[in-house]
Every structure is written in structure tokens, then in C-alpha cells.
Design a binder for these strands. Structure first.
Lengths: 207, 207
DNA sequence: CAAAATATACCTATTATTGGGTATTTTTTT
DNA sequence: AAAAAAATACCCAATAATAGGTATATTTTG
């Protein structure tokens, strides 16, 4: 009997999976959550064998939640169930310790299949999930690693704040903020006026 | 017997709804689609009583699809089933002729309920869907109406193009593009450097 | 057809961001 | 403790975008 926990902010989808698994003899749903915080609570309390989780969720996102779960309970298998097919998202999820990755435009049958496969200790990746591209990319070039401070500033850039406003908020000089911006632009390989804002907004939206 | 068509780009969710409705005596699913184009095909061929549709879909989005359906078959009831809770999206869907609007974080029970209600000619709006705010807002102030040319330019702004690049692409002067930008900023009530790009990117993302 | 709306274009000025540097202090890692 | 990384700050120059105007041709609407 596989003990399963589900985290997904769309209750309708949870309902659908529950309906499907009601008649599955070897899987029991031991808890469901609409956000990452609740998921971690459930995992700590009931320790499932497999966790099926969305990436974009309130409070704690799926990537962060997976990291926490894998740190505390390395034996628990995590499957990402999301609409993001960007290599960036897949990579982060794998690095967080996920054993599987399936897209929401897959069938429920595939979801069921993935749960069974990862519970045996294997990995499962959906058809549209190109895992090969990931390893090559992340092993050769390790671009895009920002520091804490840079991410902090990037978040404020995403909020539409100017360098001056960011400087005031963080109690640092405007030119320091500008230096951080320049460094981020270099690290991320961007060029042009609105590009950092663009990047910041996209990141924000993506997870 | 209510004849239902479903359009939703996440197959898993369609599967879930199908499971739920399999045991419903008074509803039969006459077709499902993963994009707006397919939905319209199904509607033309099989003329359902009720259409349950997502907003963000490939090819033709839910708003455009609803307009087409309501124009050709005014008696067909459309329910929006989406994750967008912005008044903007709700407003556009209502204007397109939708009879209901429910969020994806609702339960499948609520979906079932909505289908039954709208099939009787009534309207159904989920708890988190604030319909009252819409009417007031759209009747009093009619802000944010951009012209074709402005939308064209805004789309290029969203692509990260500079005024100069936009001017070259559209065979007009740079200063003309700047004028359009200024007018859009005024009409949309924006202020500050990156705000138009911000707005453009958000719009792009939202539907 | 006349009026209104839209698209076009120019002017001046200000400001934020970018791009090129350099440099010091603090923190983290080895 | 020494080396590396990160955070801080400054300089100068170039450019894109915003903000305030005005103005004319074109298209759409009443």
C-alpha cells in the first residue's frame, strides 16, 4: 500500500485525483494540501511514501517544500505535478530532490503510473519533460547564480521600484544598488534597458 | 439530460471531471478539447447545452472562444473555469457572454453545481468571484481602452523592443512611437520608468 | 458632410538605467 | 590565517524612457 500526500492549490484537481485513486487498491491518500506549508505539516505528521506536488503554490512553493521534505525525510519520493515545462523549473525541482516530473496536461492515468514507478525507487519523467537537456546544461555552464543580496534586490526590481527606492529601503547607497544591477545583468547574460525588469518579472511569475 | 462540452488544456483536470460525471445521471460529456479551436469544432458539430471552458488555452483563448460560441449559438451556456480571479478577466468573460465563472481552486462539487444551475438559465459565480465590483467599475469609469495601433505597439513593448526598434518595424517615426507610449501611459494611469513594460508583460501573462 | 477619434510627428527637459571602470570593507570558504 | 567571494561605494559617459507641450494628416463615426 502506497501512502500518498497531494499538494495542489486547485482543489478541483485534487478532487479529480481522489476520485481516481478511490478505486485503486494499492494507493491511499493520507492527506491533501492547498499550499506548501500545509504539505510539510502533513508530511511531518503522517510521513507518506510519495508526495505529489504542484510548483506554484501559496506560502511555500513546491521547490522549497521539496527541499525541506528531502532534507528531513530523504526516503520520501517527491513527484512534481505542474504546468511549467521550462528546463529551469525542471532543473530546480530535480536539484531539490524530486524523483519525478509530470505536466498537468498529462492524463490521470499517467499520474497513477508515475506514483507507482517512483514508489519502487525509480524515476519518472513525462513525455514532454526533457531531462537530457538539463544535465548537459547544468554540468557545462553554471550561469545565473545570484547571491542573496542580488535576489533581494531583484525582487524589489520586480516590484517596479527604482534604484533610489531600493537603496532607501535597504539602507544602502543608490550606486551600490546600481552595481548589483550591473553585476546581475552580467551574470544573467542580459543586455538592454528593460531587460533586468523583464527577467525579474518573468522569474516572479514562473514560480 | 444536460449535454456538456469541456475545454481545458490540462488533460488531468478533464480526466477528473469525467470521473466525477460518469456517475451523474443527468449530465453527459459530449466532447472534450485541449484548446479553443477544438472546442469550437465540437460545439458546431454536437451543440452542447453547457460549455465549461478554461480562459488560458492554446490557439484560441476562452474569452475569444466564448464570443464565437455565443454569437453562433446564443442559447448555449458557457461557464468559465479558470485560475484567474482578476476583475479584468471576469469582466471580459461576462462581456463575452458567459453565464458562470468558477475558480479552479473550487471543489468538483461546485463545478457540478454550476453546470446544473446555468443549464436552467440562471447564472453561477463562485464565492471568490466578486461580480458586484465589476458592474460598478465598468459602468462608472471606462479606463484602459487602447486603440489597435496602441495594442500593437504595446505587444512589441512586451517583447522588449525599444522605441527605435518598434519604429523601424512599423515604418513610422521614433517620436510617433513615443507619443503612443505617452498616450498609453496616460490612458492606463501609469507613472514611472518601467511601468509600461510592466503592464505589457502582465497583460501578456494574464490571458 | 461635419465632427470626433486616431495616428502621425516634432520640441525641450529630466531622469533612470546601462556599461565601462576601480576600490574598500565585510563575510565566507578553504 | 589566508584566499576567495560578496557587499559596499564611487566615477564618467551614453542612451532610452518619461513628461510636458503642440500640430497635422488620416480615418472613423454620427
Amino acid at each position: 500500500m502506497i501512502r500518498l500526500a497531494i499538494a495542489e492549490d486547485h482543489q478541483s484537481l485534487i478532487d479529480g485525483i481522489e476520485l481516481l485513486l478511490k478505486y485503486e487498491e494499492n494507493i491511499s491518500i493520507i492527506g491533501t494540501a492547498n499550499d506548501g506549508e500545509k504539505l510539510i505539516d502533513i508530511v511531518r505528521l503522517k510521513q507518506p511514501h510519495v508526495v505529489l506536488t504542484d510548483i506554484r503554490m501559496p506560502k511555500i512553493d513546491g521547490i522549497a517544500a521539496t527541499k525541506i521534505i528531502k532534507k528531513e525525510f530523504p526516503h520520501i519520493k517527491v513527484i512534481a505535478f505542474t504546468m511549467f515545462e521550462q528546463t529551469d523549473a525542471i532543473e530546480q525541482m530535480i536539484n531539490a530532490g524530486a524523483s519525478g516530473y509530470i505536466l498537468k496536461n498529462s492524463s490521470l492515468e499517467e499520474v497513477l503510473n508515475a506514483i507507482n514507478v517512483v514508489s519502487k525507487g525509480e524515476t519518472y519523467f513525462g513525455k514532454n519533460v526533457n531531462v537530457n537537456a538539463i544535465n548537459k546544461e547544468s554540468s557545462t555552464k553554471k550561469k545565473g547564480k545570484l547571491t542573496k543580496r542580488q535576489i533581494e534586490i531583484l525582487a524589489l526590481v520586480a516590484q517596479g521600484k527604482t534604484s533610489r527606492e531600493i537603496a532607501e529601503q535597504l539602507f544602502i547607497g543608490v550606486q551600490t544598488v546600481d552595481t548589483h544591477r550591473k553585476n546581475m545583468i552580467r551574470i544573467l547574460g542580459l543586455h538592454g534597458k528593460g531587460e533586468l525588469l523583464r527577467y525579474a518579472l518573468e522569474k516572479k511569475y514562473n514560480f
